[in-house]
Design a protein around this nucleic acid. Structure first.
Lengths: 239, 239
DNA sequence: TGTCTCAGTGAACAGCGTTAACTGTTAACG
DNA sequence: CGTTAACAGTTAACGCTGTTCACTGAGACA
């Protein structure tokens, strides 16, 4: 087993996994601020400079952690929708959105790292092919694919091109390929639903909602039902 | 002038204002991470321990900055809606929401500090009367009052109690006083509109939107128009 | 005038990310 | 097989951070 990999390669991979595991544990227990080179090294019984054989900087470690977390989240969602096969697409939408919320609530620190404050630097355009970005795209594709599947399965009513305005229309039409041929109005709706889900989950996880809604679960369910109705789905109530 | 205040009190107030001004400048130019005790002291020509006469800790400084920023944002919005008097309430809603978005885009670092990742500690219940929290409540009251005014001016259609489900209904009814007597269904709608605006602005400021919408302005306007229609407002298109 | 309060200083501590020079083990090549 | 090069890891150090303590000097008040 592990042919082609020398002994040292294997131990290197193991140490690398250990580092990321410890970083993950620190993230969970103390937030992003707790993930430090020295802290990781301390728990591994290593000296801080040793970690520079695995990551060129502290930021690189965190970035790798982000990429891993994106993949973990994506994997959890794919596993979820693979679990109950032959579910109709409406049920699958509920499954995935609820799954995302559950993951976010169960892993607030990780969610914060992935979806929280990340001010973009104006120059940008350079980090388009970083592994973290690619992992984020893979995550986004899960929902993008689902909504496209729903669309091709049972097209839902959508605003006409004239109602969108020329500027918005042009931008949305540029995404029609990414959304497997959906018209601009349908993409507009999909985007608005995603924004609602994102805002909802963010506010709940970050505690900006529970001063008005102590338990946001019921509210989330109601919003999901509303979205399902607008999409013309059967709204299968779990519970 | 400044009677009752001794010379020392006045200079203390001035220094305190200087500290916060420098902290603000550092925040703008370099994000939250750039706001450090030593950095502030350095730019003020002071030694780091001197700042401990004004703030008990670094965190206290940042907290005070947050409170100030909330008040500044609230003030900017109130000023905005005081500027064009006798505007009808529909126009005022557009004015305020656009004002919030403009402020967020013009001050991304400040917006991130106020509305970005702030994981709540589980025990909680203790920071309910911190100045930052109170300032946040004052900010929230701006929109809460506006939506209540709109409601009492021209009640909009809202979901019936039976459609909300018992759990959600109970939580919403507990807020009926905060919302000046609005029924649960109307509060539900107001909340959902707020979540949409919050999610939209967050995603735009944090750059999670411009990989699909390079210019989210048109999208924001469309969403606003949609909300206005659902509220039965005249949708006065600015521009 | 004398005392007391308090803004501010200098020195120091612990912790952080990071670099440089060095040591020993392991893989690779003639 | 023996030599050499690559590499994981260490020690020591630099500059940075928030924070504490003992101390100084000047304004406030009796």
């Amino acid at each position: 087993m592990d042919e082609g990999a020398t002994r040292r390669d294997r131990q290197r991979a193991a140490t690398l996994a250990d580092i990321k595991a410890v970083a993950r544990r620190l993230l969970v227990s103390g937030g992003v601020g707790a993930v430090g080179l020295r802290a990781v090294a301390r728990e591994l019984g290593l000296t801080p400079p040793a970690l520079y054989r695995y990551f060129p900087s502290h930021e690189a470690l965190v970035t790798a952690l982000i990429a891993d977390l994106y993949d973990e989240l994506t994997g959890a969602l794919m596993e979820l929708q693979a679990a109950d096969t032959d579910a109709d697409l409406g049920a699958r939408l509920f499954l995935l959105t609820n799954g995302l919320r559950d993951w976010a609530l169960a892993h607030p620190s990780e969610f914060a790292l992935l979806f929280g404050t990340a001010i973009p630097n104006p120059e940008a355009e350079d980090h388009a092919d970083t592994p973290g970005h690619q992992a984020a795209m893979r995550f986004g594709a899960v929902f993008k694919d689902l909504v496209a599947q729903i669309w091709h399965w049972k097209p839902f009513p959508y605003p006409a091109d004239e109602d969108l305005g020329p500027v918005l229309l042009a931008q949305l039409q540029q995404e029609t390929e990414e959304f497997q041929g959906m018209p601009a109005g349908a993409i507009y709706l999909a985007l608005s639903y995603w924004v609602r889900l994102y805002g909802l989950i963010c506010m709940e996880v970050f505690g900006q909602l529970h001063w008005v809604l102590p338990d946001a679960g019921a509210y989330f369910e109601a919003q999901l039902r509303e979205i399902g109705e607008e999409l013309g789905l059967d709204c299968p109530l779990p519970e």
